[in-house]
Design a binder for these strands. Sequence first.
DNA 1: TACATTTACGTAACCAGTTACATAATAACT
DNA 2: AGTTATTATGTAACTGGTTACGTAAATGTA
Lengths: 161, 161
Amino acid sequence: MEADFLAEMGYTGLTGRLKRLSDAFIYQTRDFYREHESDIEPNWHMIFLLLQKNEKMTVTEIADTLQLSHPAIVKLINKMKKRGYIDAEIDPQDNRKYHLMLSQKAIKKLPVLEQYWIAGEKALEELLGFNTRLLEEIKKLEDRMAEADFKTRMDKLLVNE
Amino acid sequence: MEADFLAEMGYTGLTGRLKRLSDAFIYQTRDFYREHESDIEPNWHMIFLLLQKNEKMTVTEIADTLQLSHPAIVKLINKMKKRGYIDAEIDPQDNRKYHLMLSQKAIKKLPVLEQYWIAGEKALEELLGFNTRLLEEIKKLEDRMAEADFKTRMDKLLVNE
DNA sequence: TACATTTACGTAACCAGTTACATAATAACT
DNA sequence: AGTTATTATGTAACTGGTTACGTAAATGTA
């Protein structure tokens, strides 16, 4: 097990480590789904939860709620539609809007998915040592990013350009 | 400022938040470079540092050091070559290997880049509230991932499949 | 009521990583 | 020395995000 260059770089390595961690979660979750349940993808999780809670949502509403761009949601939803997990109906009052909802196929699969989600949650608890310290630190970081983001701060801190 | 759905989800939202944070850093750094220095990209930073320290490295060495796949490094290096920041020479003993090094153009640009990197480091310090708590928590997570990764733990924790 | 603005969604091109596969050079073995 | 295994690099197709641009429907306004 060799040394971790990024970890040795202190602050400088942090952004790369965040990327590495985030990717690890995504790829491993995808692996997990593929072994257990062929055609579901990791980033559908939040869509399932959202539509389970709200029944019907538009593309824009989902994008806002998850703080992602709308094209990201469009791509995601199109794939879910193609695989039969999402139904859509046009808003009779406003023909630009689609109301998205879970299909019967999706609803039928929920109990199985919930088992996976629980396993994921438990795995994460283990990984975080059964405390919420990391969560809290990330919250602080998010809050500070909301006050003034990374670029704004870099611009400000760049000496004599 | 509406509520953050992901943050409200506790453990479940964490992976999405890591992705969101990581992306934010990447996109904002790219923005920063574009405004100040047209043709440099954020993920070149570690390559610059590595080749500044080691002078000559092969694709495989870089990939191992950064813990990325070799195709990732190939793509990255190709772009850096195309823009004239990397020179390569074939190993006379082993014709499969390329020794990569910073070009004169790259070396000449280092002082400017170092100003940017310092600004980034300071911005990160601010964002982390001038303490290393988050760094420490991430280190713990990485260590636990090395012991047993997310997928392994999910598999183990999945009840009665 | 016509025109301008905004909103909702879609598409294209890009970035940054992955896995899976291919190929050529070297090393290892018998 | 010839065959096999390994290593170094390259390529293709994919995931999952982005920004920039386009278009149609709805809304606001002169």
